[in-house]
Design a binder for these strands. Structure first.
Lengths: 144, 144
DNA sequence: GGCATTGGTTAGCTAAGCTAATTATTCCGC
DNA sequence: GCGGAATAATTAGCTTAGCTAACCAATGCC
């Protein structure tokens, strides 16, 4: 029976491994031809559905004026669209276009495929442990 | 005996969990009063020792001119220092100052502590699985 | 109906990214 | 050991991404 690991130490490992992992997959994004901040904002719309600009800004940890210009750029590239919110005409509803959706999905698939190419080095048992650890982490990060 | 999970699916979960995790801890960096790109470059020096500008740029996936100015800023803030490399006088050696080191370590500690505050919600058995999964992931990401 | 609140944009700044061009070494071939 | 190619860094000048302050438009509430 292995001894229970120290929480701070696990957090430390987790932190640096996450950094390394994203640094690794980030290289794949250069192919997409879309700037990181825009890609990230687009991803929020694609996975969360139409959102107001404020929500989008909050999700991206950015101020509204910053997001306003990112959305300008996404619109100019035909990847997102502002639509009027009939419930509250102050707010806009921002949604990804078809093209924005597929572009994001392709980029994401590239990242995931690339990451998977590292995971195939693991034994089935290791992969299973990784999947279980991941599930535990997701529970931990859950709000509440 | 649980069945062996699908590699692509694990990669997918891993990817999105890593994104979520870093987005979560990033909030802690606002306290440090140092911009993200600088903090990240500083971290490379602190953990890897003195490096040339090119190495630093490569590590950060950035072009040399960009890194040159980040180092300018770090020097101006008294967090890093360029020293001459007597072996190759074209190149500079960039190192964190004492103050740069402690500033980074404090920031890192804040992030880790914050992350740890989520992990305490886990049962000892879950934490152990997480630690094992993490070890597997580190093996997978290892170059080679 | 008037006024505070809320959502978004505009203006104007700094920081962070890029390419192209310049300068200073180093390396290499002869 | 000299001259040219290659390499390390910086400078110049551009775009994108971040910010605050100021503004306009719609909502909401007494």
């Amino acid at each position: 029976m292995p001894k229970t690991p120290n929480v701070e130490e696990v957090a430390d490992q987790l932190h640096s491994t996450a950094i390394r992992l994203l640094r690794l997959v980030r290289v794949q994004d250069t192919t997409s031809g879309i700037a990181p901040a825009r890609l990230s904002a687009l991803s929020v719309m694609v996975f969360g559905g139409p959102v107001s600009l404020r929500e989008l800004a909050r999700a991206e940890q950015v101020r509204p004026p910053t997001m306003s210009r990112i959305v300008d750029a996404l619109e100019a590239q035909g990847l997102a669209r502002r639509t009027i919110n009939t419930k509250d005409r102050r707010a806009v509803l921002i949604a990804a276009t078809k093209r924005g959706q597929s572009l994001l999905q392709e980029g994401r698939a590239r990242r995931v495929k690339f990451l998977a190419s590292y995971l195939v080095k693991l034994e089935p048992a290791e992969l299973r442990i990784l999947a279980e650890g991941l599930a535990a982490m997701q529970r931990a990060l859950q709000p509440g």
